[in-house]
């Protein structure tokens, strides 16, 4: 967390420096940044990153909570600002505000089975949870990660996925929508993996992140399996601009995604998601 100091305007970014960057996929970059006054974050929170002269966007933090000095962001090059961010070299200076938002309630999963359902780039915002679960593995019941990607070449964090799959204390299943001939794993939507997953629905906490349609299917699949809606958590994306609940751009019915979220439980979110164009 940034030390606010006595008179810091929350809309004024601090200057942060890109210290390392690497290409995860042709259109996805992960970089580490350093920011003065930064003292950590909670899983699921996001920063507002700005490229001067281009714009500012919210980006989830994808690194481990246990290493508070490292600020890690994974960015897909899809718009003008994310493209500018993704193309920054090491040493570049950007603006940073944050961290913001309601984090994943990982503490709610203590002693319970945990199912993490992620799709596409949605693996980045849940990666801090996975680090936490692995670091404190004995504090949780069965841990399952179900990950879906468009194709084998679109799989994020492939090296880490392979490491996690090799562990005996967590279940990791990966599926792709479109297989290549060299692919020998699951083919189909990520929610189809729920049927084969081992968890006690009455004692499960689930974390779901990915494209919104996928999250709706995922949350419904989990409730169909018997997980209580209040035990299913999703991370929402909306047009966040101020990140402090003032501007209203990210309003979702009665809530602001930036301030009241981005993490919500399904019991609260489901009625809102049923409203078209909300």
């Amino acid at each position: 967390m940034l030390d606010p100091g006595p008179h810091v305007d929350p809309m004024v970014p601090v200057l942060a420096t890109v210290t390392r960057r690497w290409q995860d996929l042709p259109d996805v970059v992960t970089f580490e940044i350093e920011a003065p006054g930064w003292s950590g974050f909670a899983p699921g929170q996001f920063n507002m990153l700005s490229v001067f002269g281009v714009g500012e966007i919210p980006i989830s933090i994808s690194g481990p909570v246990s290493d508070p000095g490292r600020i890690v962001h994974t960015i897909r090059d899809v718009g003008p600002v994310s493209k500018a961010l993704a193309n920054l070299p090491e040493g570049a200076v950007i603006g940073l505000r944050g961290p913001y938002g309601v984090p994943w309630p990982v503490e709610r999963a203590l002693g319970r089975d945990v199912v993490v359902v992620a799709g596409g780039l949605g693996l980045a915002p849940v990666r801090p949870i996975l680090y936490e679960l692995i670091e404190n593995r004995l504090d949780y019941g069965k841990v399952t990660l179900l990950y879906g990607a468009r194709s084998p070449r679109d799989m994020l964090f492939a090296t880490e996925l392979a490491e996690w799959r090799s562990r005996l204390d967590i279940g990791v299943e990966v599926t792709v929508d479109r297989a290549t001939e060299a692919w020998h794993g699951h083919v189909g939507v990520v929610t189809s993996l729920l049927a084969g997953a081992d968890f006690d629905p009455a004692a499960t906490t689930a974390f779901v992140c990915g494209p919104e349609i996928m999250m709706r299917f995922g949350a419904n699949g989990l409730t169909d399996a018997g997980v209580a809606p209040g035990d299913i958590f999703l991370s929402m994306e909306r047009n966040m601009q101020c990140a402090i609940g003032l501007c209203g751009h990210c309003q979702l019915g009665p809530v602001f995604v930036c301030k009241d979220g981005p993490v919500f439980d399904w019991a609260r979110l489901k009625p809102l998601m049923a409203v078209k164009e909300l």
Partner: peptide, 10 residues
């Protein structure tokens, strides 16, 4: 249907 929607093509 979900597979056909290609939801990851954001």
């Amino acid at each position: 249907r979900l597979q056909m929607l290609d939801v990851y093509d954001a």
